[in-house]
Computed example of a mutant assay.
Amino acid sequence: MIAVHRVNVWVHDQQVAAEFWTGKVGFELRADATFPELGGFRWLTVGPPGQPGFELVLMAIPEPPVVTPEQTELIRAVTSQGLGGAIFLATDDVRRDHALLRARGVEFTEEPEPRPYGLDAGFRDPSGNQVRLTQTREDGDTT
Rank of each mutant, 00 (worst) to 15 (best):
L44S: 04
A121F: 05
P62R: 13
T45G: 01
Q135I: 08
P116Q: 08
H5P: 00
A17K: 08
F27H: 09
I61C: 02
R30E: 08
A77I: 04
V67W: 05
P65W: 01
E63V: 14
G105E: 05
Q14Y: 13
D93Q: 01
V78H: 03
Q130K: 14
G128A: 07
N129K: 02
P48S: 12
R132P: 00
L29F: 04
W21G: 04
A90Y: 12
S80Q: 12
A86K: 12
T34N: 02
T68S: 15
G26C: 05
T91I: 08
F123W: 02
R96W: 10
G122H: 13
P62N: 07
A18W: 09
K24W: 06
G40I: 03
A103K: 13
I75W: 09
A86F: 06
R95I: 08
R95G: 00
W21M: 07
V106P: 06
P49T: 04
M59F: 07
I2D: 08
T79M: 02
P114C: 00
G118Y: 01
V57Q: 15
V7W: 06
A99S: 10
A17G: 10
E28D: 14
Q14E: 11
G84F: 05
G50Y: 10
F41I: 03
Q15L: 14
F88V: 15
V46F: 07
W43V: 07
I2C: 00
A77G: 02
G122C: 09
P69E: 06
V66G: 00
N8S: 07
G118C: 04
G122Y: 09
I75Y: 14
R76S: 12
P65E: 07
Q81L: 13
R137I: 14
R95Y: 11
E55W: 10
L119C: 06
L38S: 09
L29S: 09
G23E: 13
S127K: 08
T79C: 01
V131L: 09
E55M: 12
G118H: 05
A99L: 12
L74R: 15
G140P: 11
Q14P: 00
Y117S: 04
R6E: 15
G122F: 09
V11F: 11
E107C: 04
F88W: 01
G39V: 05
P112F: 02
E110M: 15
A90M: 15
M1I: 01
T45Q: 10
H5G: 00
L56M: 06
P114M: 01
D139N: 11
P116N: 08
R132A: 14
T143H: 11
H12C: 02
E63G: 06
E110W: 10
R6H: 15
T109M: 09
A31N: 08
E19V: 00
F20Q: 11
